[in-house]
Amino acid sequence: MPPLCEVAGLKTHFPLRGPAAWLRALKDGKPPVVRAVDGVSFTLDPGETVGLVGESGCGKSTVARTLVRLVPPTAGSIRFDGEEISTLSDSGFNKVRPDLQMVFQDPTASLNPRLSVRRMVGEPLKLHTRLSPAERRERTDAVLEEVGLGADLADRYAHELSGGQRQRVNIARALVTNPRLLVLDEPTSALDVSLRARVILLLEELRQRHGLSYLFISHDLATVRYLASRVAVMYLGVIVEEAPAGELFDHPTHPYTRALLAAVPVPDPDAPRDPFVLSGEIPSPIDIPAGCRLRARCPMAQPVCAEPVPWREVAPGHFAACHLV
């Protein structure tokens, strides 16, 4: 089966502006650039959930936003259903949008406070389909029903809903056009424990029922383990390790992955703790070190780590970018 979405060598850079940037440009001879995404490649099969994890500032949300063209890519290719979509014009891209939808982290900020639930969820249909108002309403109510929101909530406004209900509205709005790929950017982070569990189960049920593919972006590693079949770990604009979910969580090989997993508190007082930690903090994506990007923080760093890092298969389907594995 050909992959549904194939991302290769994706780069998203943001040029810096302002007096400080101008001074730097004079000094370095070239304008400073934030290399938020700096060469990312992955594929997503139909019906598959790929988890993209990493800490704040690693570029995972920029990958998501680039994929749905909220920011333009700087370089690289994004093939969706066999078609190159990174070079499409904005109007050409609009034809792909119904198939490629996104759910955002903040369930409140991503809803329009002045529209009723029904109007918000129905809006993509107005933009992307030729359905009549009656057909739109029917489709909207069916999707609301599917995400567990009854018809009595359809006439309400965002401020009248709980956090969990708001995120369901966001999911309904993303689903209403019958997409094939949903980009989920931290959809459960703003939710309370019990609501989180319900949204996770809802997402899994919807995926199975409709054969959806998810790009699930999160720093909540336990949720990623629950939902994703494959997981990619990002650090400073690049993917440093990728593997089937169970394999990645049970046998992390990249030092960054190992440190990340070791930092997650396990709800079991007798669970063994890996004392592995990195020193320092994530460096600025403007001044990215050459060679391995983790080098300065890695307790295992060797002179070889200053060389370009190979992307190696360390076990079947398990890849890592590290000189030492």
Binding site: A197, R225, Y226
Partner: peptide, 11 residues
């Protein structure tokens, strides 16, 4: 009700 990082569970 919480997903676990250390093993697969039914949530």
């Amino acid at each position: 009700s919480i997903p676990r990082i250390d093993r697969e569970i039914v949530m």
